[in-house]
Simulated assay, not measured.
Amino acid sequence: MITTREGSRHVTVRVPAKVNLELNVGPHRADGYHDLATVFHAVSLYDDVTVEPAADWEVVAAGPYAEQIPLDESNLALLAARRVAQAGGVDTPVRITIDKQIPVAGGMAGGSADGAAALVACDALWGLELSRPQLDAMAGDLGSDVAFALTGGTAIGSGRGESLAPVLARGSYHWVFAISEGGLSTPAVYAECDRMRGRRRIAAPEPSDDLMAALRSGDPQALGSALSNDLQEAAFSLRPPLRDLLAAGLEMGALGGVVSGSGPTVAFLAADAEGALDLAVALAAVGSAPEVKRATGPAHGAHVLSHEMTRGR
Rank of each mutant, 00 (worst) to 15 (best):
N75D: 13
R170G: 13
D31F: 10
G224Q: 06
L164K: 01
A267H: 11
F177D: 03
D47G: 00
A267D: 08
L135Y: 00
E251R: 14
L21D: 03
E206A: 14
S131G: 14
G312L: 11
N20M: 11
S131L: 01
V60C: 13
D278R: 15
G111Q: 02
L36R: 02
L242M: 09
D244F: 02
G107W: 00
G157R: 08
P290A: 05
Q86M: 09
S172F: 00
Y65A: 04
A121R: 03
S306E: 15
G7T: 10
S112K: 01
G63S: 08
A235Y: 02
Q101I: 00
A234F: 05
D141A: 15
D210T: 13
G157V: 06
L242V: 04
A191Y: 02
S158N: 08
R82I: 05
I202S: 02
L135Q: 01
A105M: 08
E192H: 09
R243Y: 07
K18E: 11
A226Y: 13
A282D: 14
P290E: 11
T50G: 10
I2W: 11
D210G: 03
F268M: 04
D99Q: 11
E274A: 12
D209E: 15
G183K: 09
A299P: 08
G218C: 10
Y173R: 13
F177Y: 10
L135E: 04
G249A: 05
F268A: 03
A85C: 15
G183T: 12
T12K: 04
L184Q: 08
T151W: 02
S208M: 07
G106Y: 10
V176M: 10
G89M: 07
G88S: 01
V84S: 04
P241H: 09
A30V: 13
A61I: 04
N75K: 09
